[in-house]
Amino acid sequence: MNIFRLTADLMHLASIFILLLKIQKTRSCAGISFKSQLLYALVFITRYIDLFFYWVSLYNTLMKIFFIGSSLYIVYLMQVKFRATNDPVLDTFRIEYLLAPCALLALVANYAFTAQEILWAFSVYLEAGAILPQLFMLQRRGEAETITTHYLFALGAYRGLYLLNWIYRYWAEGYVDWIAWIAGLVQTGLYTDFFYIYYTKVLKGQKFELPA
């Protein structure tokens, strides 16, 4: 464990708490893509299935339980409790165009042709693109509540910090993980526009609005 990875994981945790806070405080999931949240639940389930037969540490196990549990809870909040505030009209990204290529890629680019490794690779590829429905929805709305932008910032910063962690681990331990690295680079890259607007608007006290 190094400072980049710990900070990254804490940012990831923070992003989920911010999202829960947004939904509970405003009693609404307006502006949040249900499709992205559904994909994250799928990412966590397929990656952390090893929870039952692969022990890393107590930290690792507790985080896995938290991520699976909270993602399912968010899906429940959006689909059941606050369903009326969910806006499927703006949530139009075709997730099959994401799921199918990720499944294919996982079958050909993995560390071992076993169910567990294929699911792991699938989860890493899917995580890289899981934010796309959310960014697509943001684009269609043209604006976002400030708390939603804090959620997206924390979520984007998490994978960005993992990039620093990987550089550090390569240097310190000779650690190499090409699948996670390339997917992580793509994932962080998707946030570039968002980060720019977050930095130039939200951090200066303005509303998050996309240029016309």
Binding site: D50, Y54, V56, Q116, E117, W120, D177
Partner: peptide
């Protein structure tokens, strides 16, 4: 095994 040991991250 070695392959699995690579997945110590979240």
């Amino acid at each position: 095994d070695d392959t699995r040991a690579a997945h110590d991250e979240l």
